[in-house]
């Protein structure tokens, strides 16, 4: 009796092709993604008094601190934009990227327990992280909009322009970058934990290599190219340009970031997929 290959709905083999990503299966598990997002959102602030208000407080205090330290004490230029708005625009964007990156990079180690007991497409985990952070970003973004509205009506000269239509795309780029880098690092940390140490201070340092606390326009020419090589730079600058009307906006820079994000995302998914099959043996 000869069995045809297509009779089997599932074939488990040592390793599969590099691009055998099983995205259809990821789609089938979309309800699980929703559950994870819900879990992250609901569970984080259980047994706290302020609850979701913590979502606001964190960026608010960071903004105030930055305003005092970098704006008032260090006197770094904000391109004529009210410092509160300037810093918050940078922080809200940067936070989304960095949270996606750091949480995703922990995927395997954090979830070793559950991954070791039950199968579901592992990609669901980092995807759910990006989505739950998107909710957090949404809340912080609303805070930013409220602040923006106040300044616009108070007549401080800031004026959102046509570039706001690019904002969803910018968010997508940040998600792709955070996800891509995060998955690459998570794949690397399963066997050798060295990357874990790098990531904790690396992300902090990377913030200073992005125009979060300074505008690109004030940079000396010789540094400008290095800062622009950072794919987050043009994203944050465009974000600021869209809402505050100040900042560097250049299609070429943005195109570079898009290309970078796409490459990193694909690379991240492929490596992640490769590692997920046997990571339980080494984690």
């Amino acid at each position: 009796m000869k069995e045809k290959e297509e009779d089997w709905t599932l074939v488990i083999k040592p390793s599969s092709g590099l691009f055998d990503l099983q995205l259809r299966e990821v789609w089938r598990y979309r309800d699980l993604l929703q559950m994870f997002v819900r879990r992250d959102f609901v569970a984080v602030y259980k047994q706290t008094i302020l609850g979701p208000i913590w979502f606001f407080l964190q960026p608010l205090f960071t903004t105030i601190t930055f305003t005092i330290v970098f704006g008032n004490i260090a006197g770094i230029s904000t391109d004529g934009v009210p410092p509160l708005l300037f810093y918050m625009a940078g922080i809200v964007g940067w936070n989304y990227f960095s949270e996606c990156l750091t949480t995703t990079s922990n995927t395997f180690i954090q979830n070793a327990n559950i991954f070791g007991k039950v199968y579901f497409p592992r990609l669901i985990m980092p995807l759910s992280i990006v989505v739950s952070n998107l909710l957090k970003f949404g809340v912080q973004f609303v805070l930013f909009l409220v602040l923006l509205a106040y300044y616009v009506f108070a007549g401080s000269g800031v004026q959102p322009n046509w570039a706001v239509v690019l904002v969803p795309f910018l968010v997508l780029l940040m998600a792709a970058l955070g996800l891509g880098f995060g998955m690459l690092i998570s794949a690397m940390t399963t066997k050798y934990r060295d990357m874990k140490f790098l990531i904790t201070f690396g992300v902090q340092l990377a913030m200073y290599a992005s125009p979060v606390i300074y505008p690109i326009s004030t940079l000396p020419e010789k540094y400008k190219l290095y800062i622009l090589a950072n794919p987050m730079s043009s994203i944050i600058e465009t974000f600021r340009y869209a809402f505050l009307g100040e900042g560097t906006f250049n299609w070429m820079y943005l195109g570079y970031s898009t290309l970078f994000a796409a490459v990193i995302l694909v690379l991240g998914i492929v490596v992640f997929n490769k590692v997920e099959k046997s990571f339980m043996d080494t984690v």
Partner: peptide, 13 residues
Amino acid sequence: RVTAPTTGSIKAK
């Protein structure tokens, strides 16, 4: 499918 085999295969319906 928690981990992958070193060699061989499992087929299932």
